[in-house]
Amino acid sequence: MTITPMTQAFIRGAEECEATRRGIRPHRLPKRVRDVFADQQLQAMEVQPSGVRVVVRTSARQIQLVTHPHRIAYPGVTRPRGAVDLVVDGELLATDRLTGGDAIEIDLATGASELVPGSPHVSRFENLPVGDKTVELWLPHNESVELIELRSDAPVAPVAQRGPIWLHHGSSISHGSNATSPARVWPAVAAREAGVDLRNLGFGGSALVDPFMARVIRDAPADVISVKLGINVVNHDAMRLRAFVPAVHGFLDTIRDGHPDTPLLLVSPIFCGLHEDAPGPCMIDPASIGTGQAQFVVAGDGDADTSQGRLTLTIIRAALADIVEKRDDPALHYLDGTALYGAQDAVDLPLPDALHPDTASHELIGQRFATHAFARMGLSGLGVG
């Protein structure tokens, strides 16, 4: 087997790679952001490489990726392990579920944490198609990994950037919560459907209209940009309407400083019965701990008066649509998130934890996004959709 050490030349969809004693660790946010905005939730989410993949050109029939996973575990709450997906010439062929690695176990009742060390993991894929091909190994969306080496029965080479770059920012749903593997996260589904090169800036619990995130988007290469805002603002109870509207305007203004004419899509939240008409905050229902399926509930007063500016998803959607309508920006578009997953979808494919879609719903959202965003929102001129 040919052994190839991991370098950033083989990585797609990451901002940068940190050198570790084992190899490299992909990051989705630049070091300057990680150093200054040291929120623990954001730090934990950005290092989970949702949308990041190892990409090579090779004639190999066997390929192995050696990683050292790192994950957060909650005793009493069942969470599927991360996975590495094999995609060859755009087709998802196989999934390898991670084992081993290090775990930080957090007691939801007390907040106490404990490090449980483990061993590296080898993702083995055999019987790859004959001939020269592009192989993508999509890294786990719900665990961080150190990349150690690639083993193959033929040489591998980096692949030059090709195709339009789609940069997407969103919440845990964009990050991939409840999807069973990384290539099944809805932005990954949409990217393969449309033939674009994904950079996923979806961060669980962290789509909060942060100015630094707008600057990251401003400074990043992109041929098309989408920003999905609202659900985290509501379930954190982070803003009132008076603060939210100018914050979104400022977020868009900053993006436009670096991308004045780039097609930009503002997307409102998908349907979520928990917060359609009830303000946040929300939390995990303590009664669901230990049942194997965590459930989210509204922690505050669900009947609180929204006339004082408290936000619900219904209010958020109206505000975002109005923002787009009032801006003099022909390259700015609005997409109602309920066109991706609506009230009837919640009946047919209910959210398992009342907040996040399952794998089938991720597939549905991804396919619909490819249709609505790239074909119906005036973005097909980029050669996508």
Rank of each mutant, 00 (worst) to 15 (best):
V227E: 00
V216C: 06
V209P: 00
L265A: 10
T262F: 06
D253T: 13
R240N: 13
V196F: 06
Q308Y: 02
V234Y: 07
I217V: 13
L229N: 01
S307I: 05
R242P: 05
D219E: 14
A207C: 14
A299H: 11
D303K: 14
V233A: 07
L198Y: 05
S307L: 12
L274M: 11
Q308H: 11
P286K: 01
V234F: 07
G302T: 09
R218A: 10
N200A: 02
L241P: 03
D237L: 11
L208A: 06
A294W: 00
D285R: 02
C282F: 01
A278Y: 02
R199H: 13
V227S: 00
D285N: 15
A287T: 07
R215K: 11
N235R: 08
G290H: 07
G230L: 12
P221N: 08
I231H: 01
T254M: 13
T254L: 07
S288C: 04
L265C: 10
F296W: 14
G290Q: 03
F296V: 03
P211D: 06
A299L: 12
A304L: 09
F244A: 07
I284K: 02
G258P: 01
R242M: 11
P279E: 10
D261R: 14
R218F: 02
L266H: 03
D285P: 12
D261E: 15
F203S: 04
I255W: 14
D223H: 14
L252G: 00
P269I: 05
V196I: 11
S288H: 01
N232E: 04
M283C: 15
G204L: 03
A304H: 02
D285V: 02
A304G: 07
A304M: 05
